[in-house]
Amino acid sequence: MAGLPKRIIKETERLMADPAPGITATPHDDNLRYFDVTIAGPDGSPFAAGNFRLELFLPEEYPMAPPKVRFLTKIYHPNIDKLGRICLDILKDKWSPALQIRTVLLSIQALLSSPNPDDPLATDVAKHYKEDEKDAQRVSQEWTQLYAK
């Protein structure tokens, strides 16, 4: 790999200097394209008070291709599957090179506040959310307490 593009260096600097509230992203020393991420569960959501760990990788084509992001912490959410993969349009076909690590992580945080069971990735969770939202939220909360400390 050639030297790290200036964009990645600057983004990292800005992330560290001015982190988004409730979000941290720290690059690995040995691979500056690989970030350890934490996102705080948004208040008012079943994920509140949870601290979710994620991994983020900037592929060679970044920023022309989206970063790859995955939850490492188990989470009960209709748009996040067992493997932690996230169903979010900007991580796929709606990616724009004008988006950044920061905006991606903020979008994921927003996804925790507003699950979208109509475009599910974890179909069983989505079904649960559609049939009995209260009960599904209770499970989400349980999982948050169980896994996202």
């Binding site: 593009p5 200036k6 964009r7 600057k10 983004e11 920023p63 090179p97 004008a98």
Partner: peptide, 10 residues
């Protein structure tokens, strides 16, 4: 008066 390109940050 250089301008930063919002995509490559240069």
């Amino acid at each position: 008066g250089a301008v930063e390109c919002p995509i490559c940050f240069l």
